[in-house]
């Protein structure tokens, strides 16, 4: 990534946040907090790291992105539309029958949505399965799996962590959107999962801990992960739930509630100010 790219990508991130909030407001329901926290993680992937082609979404050698924290799908939809996987206008149909943009992702409901999610903790096992198949077939591609910090309380995640280590699945890169909150409050108070990076290391993974809103650092972490051989990689991204909107940031009330019209206006204005 060149130095001139950074301001452009930061602006993309702000625009994505505005789109996400418009979508959720229009839908009247959805999960703004966890969608806003993962924006830079997706920008780094889709604008820099992933080998992908929106015009050929079924390209067999494409890198794969698995969104395991399915409630964050407004962010994924906004990214996919911005990249040209499907028309931007469709974004405003989120969650309303008969939409292709389901409240939690349905595999291939629109091009680019690689897996279903919504029942937490399942994406990493699927990433491992693809990596095992790819190894058999001599196909080299990366498989990224984005999970929430609350999500990794699910036991299946750690079953999958052991499997990826045992089979030395270095094509698999887990990205943890550690936004500090889950539905009923701080992760630390509901069920503490720290120390995160040490946990992944203890499971045999190469762990990288970063500020998940620093796009340059995000991209650097993806680059570092790709050089790791013989080990799966975990990027622990320290983020802020509701990032970019003052009254949503680190406020558990914004886990699963849509902004009302006046709240949307305030939020959009705050984000607009970030562009200047």
């Amino acid at each position: 990534m060149s130095a001139t790219d950074l301001p452009r990508l930061q602006r993309v991130a702000v625009e994505l946040r505005q789109t996400i909030l418009r979508m959720i407001a229009k839908a009247g329901s959805g999960h703004p907090g966890g969608s806003l926290s993962m924006v830079e993680l997706l920008v780094g992937l889709y604008w820099h790291t992933l080998r992908h082609d929106p015009k050929r979404p079924d390209w067999p050698d494409r890198d794969l992105f698995f969104l395991s924290k399915g409630h964050g799908c407004p962010a994924l939809y906004a990214v996919l539309a911005a990249q040209g996987y499907f028309p931007q206008e469709e974004l405003m149909t989120l969650r309303r029958y008969p939409t292709r943009l389901q409240g939690h992702p349905e595999r291939w409901s629109v091009p680019g949505v690689e897996i279903a999610a919504g029942s937490l903790g399942q994406g990493l096992s699927m990433a491992n399965g693809v990596a095992l198949a790819d190894r058999m077939d001599g196909r080299s591609r990366r498989i990224f799996c984005l999970m929430g910090d609350g999500e990794i309380q699910e036991g299946q995640v750690w079953e999958a962590a052991m499997t990826a280590h045992h089979h030395r699945l270095d094509a698999v890169c887990a990205v943890i959107d550690a936004n500090q909150l889950q539905q009923n409050g701080p992760v630390k108070l509901i069920q503490d999962i720290e120390p995160l990076a040490e946990k992944w290391r203890a499971f045999g993974w190469h762990a990288i801990e970063i500020d998940g809103h620093d796009i340059a650092r995000v991209v650097q972490a993806y680059d570092e992960a790709e050089t790791v051989q013989g080990k799966p990689q975990a990027i622990v991204a320290r983020t802020v739930k509701g990032k970019g909107v003052s009254f949503m940031e680190l406020n558990p009330a914004w886990h699963g509630v849509a902004p009302k019209p006046d709240e949307l206006e305030r939020a959009l204005a705050e984000l607009e100010a970030l562009k200047r």
């Binding site: 690689e114 897996i115 903790g121 399942q122 990493l124 096992s125 699927m126 990433a127 491992n128 399965g129 693809v130 990596a131 095992l132 198949a133 036991g155 299946q156 079953e159 999958a160 052991m162 499997t163």
Partner: peptide, 12 residues
Amino acid sequence: QDLIGTAAGLAL
């Protein structure tokens, strides 16, 4: 649980 999830990935 990982058994079934891994099988799903292989099928993907």
